[in-house]
């Protein structure tokens, strides 16, 4: 079986060859691994990779699987499946041109109103999560067309708090 797996914003072609019930061979680029595996629990697998044992912990997230190994977390996704779903999540960093909170938060104040002209980098909304305040900035210069939140609102990441229509640059 061929997979294209996405990790750290890079895609790796991986070949999997199941040999016995709990045994398989894996190729990643020109490296070959002989792997034995046992499922211990919903979130825990015991692996033996080229003869060395390791416990690996796994949970589902909306972006893929969260994998914990030796004090480090990894996010791994199936690039082909992502493509089929047409999600843009794999591109990463796409939220940079939207005014959205990076975490679930409460809106402290909205510093602009509809019709305002804003400059790139101008503070537009202040949000607070766990008593820490952070300012969200205009991603580009333009006109505020719509305010979608007000002070006191609880907001989630991805929710656009202020719509800004990009000003055409005269070059």
């Amino acid at each position: 079986m061929e997979y294209n797996l996405l990790i750290n914003d890079k895609t790796f072609p991986v070949t999997l060859d199941i040999q016995e019930k709990n045994k398989c061979a894996v190729s990643i680029a020109d490296k070959r691994f002989s792997v034995e595996f046992d499922r211990i629990g919903e979130h825990l697998l015991s692996l033996e990779v080229n003869g060395k044992k390791i416990n690996t912990y796994i949970a589902d997230t909306p972006e893929g699987k969260e994998i914990f190994l030796n004090g480090k977390s990894y996010l791994v996704a199936d690039a082909d499946a992502l493509e089929q779903q047409g999600t843009k999540k794999s591109s990463g960093g796409k939220s940079s041109d939207e005014v959205t909170s990076p975490m679930p938060a409460v809106v402290i104040k909205v510093m602009v109103k509809e019709g305002d002209m804003v400059e790139k980098g101008q503070g537009v909304v202040v949000v607070s999560a766990m008593k820490m305040e952070t300012t969200l900035f205009a991603p580009f210069s333009g006109c505020v067309t719509r305010i979608n939140a007000q002070a006191g609102d609880k907001v989630m990441p991805g929710v656009i708090l202020v719509d800004i229509e990009k000003r055409e640059e005269n070059t």
Binding site: I7, F12, C24
Partner: peptide, 9 residues
């Protein structure tokens, strides 16, 4: 190891 973990899961 992370990729192998994903596949084994």
């Amino acid at each position: 190891l992370a990729l192998i973990s994903y596949l084994m899961n």
